[in-house]
Amino acid sequence: MKPRRRKNVASYVALIPAFIIVVFAYLGTMLWTVQISFTDSKLLPSMNFIGIRQYERLFATSRWIISLENMVIFGIGLILVCLVLGFLMAAALDQKIRFENTFRTIFLYPYAMSFIVTGLAWQWILNPTLGVQQYVRNLGWTNFQFDWIVQNDRAIYVVIIAGVWQASGLVMALMLSGLRGIDQELWKAAQIDGIPAWRVYLNIVVPMMRPTIITSVVLLSLAVVRVYDLVIALTGGGPGISSEVPAKFILDYLFGRSNIGLATAASSVLLVIVLVIITPWLYYEYFRPERAKGGK
């Protein structure tokens, strides 16, 4: 009994850093943030509780509403396009093609780079006076218009383009490893049955890839909620506030505008959104009944 106890002490000692981080950096800060959001804190935290007034104020702030709308548009656009493009690329790479490695490397390299680099690259390409628009005009189509980056109602779509450029390789990589995991005999069986390739993909492969698809959606959703650097580098939230996103809203109010009450209320809203996204998924991944997991 004695030696065992001593060993266990060592394992608790080893977990001290993780414990401190979890308790102070995660749980403590999270609770503190939520707590501040119920006070009238401005530049510094105060203990003057005012109920949900900050939340009312938050949802009366058009900039916040625009941020949320943009997040939804960006999220839907990014996830849909990445899933479709990523799956098509993975399926194409799975056809015993030549230069498979080269193509895979090309599709994935943007994912290695930062959002800042991605944003700045696309900002330059889409530059209305010197970028693609001007190039096409120089070719003779003098009325050609592609200046979304400076259009109030289009700027967020530019963010989607840049986001897709950066992240669809990730989906491709996940999907490709999913496709490679499919039993080759299944393809043979389908061939014997005379099932056309596209039907195999649609009726057999896609349903089998559900876990991969869900993982991709969760990963992309988290990127959507967190999107900050990309917008900073690409549009700066502009023109005006037309491409604002929640993460940027929060940081602006925390540090630029020193309204931490409002900012923490916004943070808490984000927190709830993320919990709504990931709770079902965590349940599915870690706690779903064994029966559904079987058959692999």
Partner: peptide, 27 residues
Amino acid sequence: WRVRGANLLFAVLLLGAFLPYQVFIYP
């Protein structure tokens, strides 16, 4: 190793991987 509360610790840790950083930053 068998550590009491290991699952809880790990669960909260995982949660930390998913939550938006904005929640932690100011504190």
